[in-house]
């Protein structure tokens, strides 16, 4: 039994010899992980998923799901995957049970089990009340819930959900996130999204894709460890001029950089040479001495968001160094030298 649910090696997709959608993407997703595939719009998340599903053929590299090589005819891969596309579309003339029954037949689920699972899933996604409606009359939230049921119908070992919370109202979004959390530990879940709070709440692993390339892949703990813990913010209450004056005074004491957001949040960045506790004590002394009151204090606007933005910034800063000069032959030779 493999301990890696999804593996890609140098996966590359170039459309028409012009548009590079996925760029040398190497990825390992452990079995049982809730893996957030994070990246801005157009980063290559959906293309990566379509390569895994065999809907597209890679230009270079390869991918495996549960030990099966991905490809156009790879039904074993698709049998292992439950896929929820972004804004799923359905045959509108069918009713939900008919649709799930059809999918069950396509997924080779035996008759009794198929009908039982379809009914159970419709109940689980709270669509029992809509079983007599045609799918064409469904709202976005209902469609997403039906898509979730469809992705679970054949009891897959891997779930791949592409932006499942896109276009959902808060209640539907909460429902979807709870459902993903419920699947954690039971299956491997890949959640492709650009919504950081979703990743923050439910994922235990994360991969950051930028311009088609995986710039970070690891556990959530690792991604937070990467965050430079050299900034914090203070939400202040008081005259705006005082807050701005405070921001101007603080750098004078050395080793600090400040910024004011929304005229009430003071962001303080600590330079490398300063002691964090000392710097924080100094800032608080300044606040106490002024006529503003401290409402709250925190370490940045969400750790994951900061880490994510930092990763993107670092990737851009690498510039041409992002190119891997080592050809496989050279790398192998080096590995041989090290081994010797």
């Amino acid at each position: 039994m493999t301990d890696v649910a999804i593996r890609t090696e140098h996966l590359t997709k170039v459309y028409g010899g012009r548009v590079i959608a996925v760029n040398d993407l190497t990825l390992d997703v452990p079995v049982g992980a809730v893996y957030g595939l994070l990246g801005p719009n157009g980063a290559g998340k959906t293309t990566t998923i379509r390569l895994l599903l065999g809907l597209q053929r890679p230009t270079a590299g390869w991918a495996e799901v549960m030990g099966h090589r991905c490809g156009v005819q790879a039904t074993a891969v698709r049998q292992a995957i439950g896929y929820l596309p972004t804004n799923p579309s359905f045959p509108g003339h069918l009713r939900p049970f008919e649709y799930l029954d059809l999918l069950g037949k396509i997924c080779r689920v035996p008759g009794d089990e198929r009908r039982r699972r379809a009914a159970d899933l419709l109940r689980a996604v709270e669509l029992l009340g809509a079983t007599n409606q045609r799918i064409s009359t469904f709202s976005t939230g209902m469609r997403t819930r039906l898509g979730i049921a469809a992705s679970l119908l054949h009891n897959p070992t891997v779930l791949i959900w592409d932006e499942p919370t896109a276009g959902l109202d808060p209640a539907a979004r909460r429902f979807t996130l709870d459902l993903i959390a419920d699947q954690a530990g039971k299956r491997t879940v890949i959640l492709a999204t650009h919504i950081l709070s979703d990743i923050d709440q439910i994922c235990d692993h994360v991969g950051v894709v930028h311009e088609g390339r995986m710039i970070f892949s690891g556990s959530m703990r690792e991604v937070r460890q990467r965050l430079r813990r050299d900034s914090f913010h203070l939400e202040l209450d008081g005259p705006v001029e005082t807050i701005h004056r405070l921001a101007a005074q603080l750098p004078a004491s050395g080793g600090l950089a400040t910024d004011v957001r929304d005229d009430r949040v003071l962001i303080v960045r600590i330079q490398d040479e300063r002691n964090r506790a000392g710097a924080l004590a100094e800032v608080l002394q300044h606040v106490a001495a002024s006529d503003v009151s401290l409402r709250s204090i925190g370490a940045g606007q969400g750790d994951t968001e900061s880490a994510y933005l930092q990763l993107l910034q670092e990737d851009r800063a690498y510039g041409f160094r992002r190119f891997d000069f080592q050809t496989p032959a050279v790398a192998d030779a080096n590995a041989g030298d090290h081994g010797a």
């Binding site: 156009v72 039904t75 995957i81 896929y83 596309p85 799923p88 359905f90 999918l103 396509i106 997924c107």
Partner: peptide, 13 residues
């Protein structure tokens, strides 16, 4: 719609 609905399932083209 076909790609998302049917061809992403365990069925060959």
């Amino acid at each position: 719609a076909l790609a998302d609905g049917i061809l992403s399932r365990p069925v060959t083209r």
